[in-house]
């Protein structure tokens, strides 16, 4: 059902954990639907210098979070905002159709964290990050 890449990221998640003094934290999803993703960012000079995630959910939710953190670590905020769910799916060599929402959630989690960063700076994130459709994956 899952590709080797998905299984690898599920079994050996990259950047899993928390950042105690994170500059930004984003959380999307809800327990009722069975998946929650939380991302912690350290941002220095507009660059994401560190990133960690925590995820409650199925294997693909864990794998999409893991690969998304890998894809944006060391990147600028602008580059991170370009991350699409499609790119996440491609990086994992595909996801089953009913698991695509997990990749959407991963994209949203990154955006939610960046929005939090702007909000903390007193900047309205919406014109930059766009409107976050609160994990409307079902």
């Amino acid at each position: 059902m899952y590709t080797e890449k998905v299984m690898d990221h599920f079994l050996n998640p990259r950047n899993m954990g928390e950042i105690q003094d994170a500059d930004a934290v984003g959380e999307v999803g809800n327990a009722k639907c069975g998946d929650i993703m939380k991302m912690y960012l350290k941002i220095d000079n507009n660059v994401i210098t560190d990133i960690k995630f925590k995820t409650f959910g199925c294997a693909s939710a864990i794998a999409t979070s893991s690969i998304a953190t890998e894809m944006i670590k060391g990147k600028s905020i602008d580059e991170a905002l370009q991350l699409t769910n499609k790119a996440v799916v491609e990086a994992l060599d595909g996801l089953p159709a009913h698991k695509i929402h997990c990749s959407v959630l991963a994209e949203q989690a990154v955006k939610a964290a960046i929005a939090d960063y702007y909000r903390k700076q007193g900047i309205d994130p919406e014109p930059i990050v766009g409107k976050l459709t609160e994990a409307d994956h079902h």
Binding site: F10, F56, G57, C58, A59, I62
Partner: peptide
């Protein structure tokens, strides 16, 4: 509490245990 069934099944499978779950996933 606090975990999701599909992940649990896949990790059990890694240990050679076949089981099932009522999780939506």
């Amino acid at each position: 509490e606090g975990i999701e069934g599909e992940s649990l099944l896949l990790l059990l499978d890694q240990k050679g245990i076949c089981a099932s779950s009522g999780s939506a996933c």
